[in-house]
Design a protein around this nucleic acid. Structure first.
Length: 286
DNA sequence: CGGAGTGTTAGTCG
DNA sequence: CCGACTAACACTCC
């Protein structure tokens, strides 16, 4: 589930409760979710203080006082649940029907923190992972990722150049390609293409300059709105206020196949592009 | 019950 | 290099 807006929401909320805390305990019941040797977690994670909670593309990056960084990828169904000593819950990730509370049958990794809180990693499908990387090597680690959509590096001109290299592919596949721009997944690809009025199947090479510029603006507008809404689709942070991500109610294309286009009222079309379910308006999107 | 579909992405194969 | 497809896994929906 989590694309840039969801991971960014999790990052912001976790950063408020994790920074300055020391990891006192680490336990794993599904070792294959660790993409680094377990001894490295014991050496560089246990005993280290979390100094920063960052994000790159769809991954969380916990900077540690040990000189290492913990990378967490939630993939489709990964979930991070922070639980204070008193038991207040903050949740990030995919909701699990009928499963409440932590730990539960999908909890595979657990951190205990110096303030008595715990951080649980749940993952129904077990695609997510944790790995440790020496902090100076992060830029190498991320060398294949394109620019963050809100960084100075992501200019319309750069977008144009990256797309030009992929002239023969569909524009939807290009948006999903993390080396073009980092953080877009299936939901926000469909949403951005709807806003830009571009058909997902369009070959990149057929796009005019004005269309590329419209898409560049659409990507940023859609992501900005989604971050402001705390993301889509997952029952966000069950804090005392019970707030949830609200982009779902603002979506214009994703998951609306057969429902009326919000511009022209024609039913939206559903198809498969780049191997992913895709919804668009056959009239408005050209 | 069987089969298709699900927010990701790395890898293979033609 | 490109793009289609698959696997990793578990669950929901029809």
């Amino acid at each position: 589930m989590p694309e840039l807006p969801e991971v960014e929401t999790i990052r912001r909320d976790l950063s408020r409760v994790l920074i300055g805390r020391r990891v006192t305990q680490f336990s794993v019941t599904r070792p294959k979710l660790l993409k680094s040797p377990r001894r490295e977690f014991r050496r560089f994670l246990v005993g280290a203080t979390i100094t920063k909670v960052a994000r790159r593309a769809k991954q969380l990056v916990f900077r540690l006082s040990s000189g290492y960084s913990l990378l967490i990828h939630l993939k489709m169904t990964g979930q991070l649940v922070w639980c204070s000593r008193q038991g207040a819950l903050r949740v990030g990730g995919h909701p699990i029907a009928g499963v409440t509370g932590v730990p539960n049958r999908y909890t595979y990794i657990l951190l205990a923190l110096s303030d008595g809180a715990h951080l649980y990693f749940n993952d129904v499908r077990q695609f997510g992972y944790w790995r440790l990387v020496a902090t100076p090597e992060l830029s190498y680690e991320f060398r294949t990722l394109g620019p963050e959509p809100f960084s100075k590096g992501f200019t319309a001109a750069r977008f144009q150049v990256e797309l030009a290299r992929r002239a023969r592919t569909s524009i939807k596949a290009a948006l999903l390609d993390q080396s073009v721009v980092a953080g877009i997944g299936n939901i926000y690809a469909d949403e951005s293409l709807f806003v830009a009025r571009l058909r997902p199947t369009r070959r990149v090479g057929s796009l005019r300059g004005t269309e590329v510029a419209a898409l560049w603006r659409a990507v940023r507008a859609v992501l900005r709105r989604a971050v402001a809404a705390r993301g889509t689709s997952f029952s966000s942070y069950r804090d005392g206020l019970g707030r949830q991500g609200t982009y779902w109610n603002m979506r214009q294309a994703y998951g609306r196949a057969g429902e009326p286009c919000l511009r022209c009222h024609r039913p939206l079309t559903r198809t498969v592009v780049a191997g992913r379910g895709t919804t668009y308006c056959a009239k408005c999107q050209r």
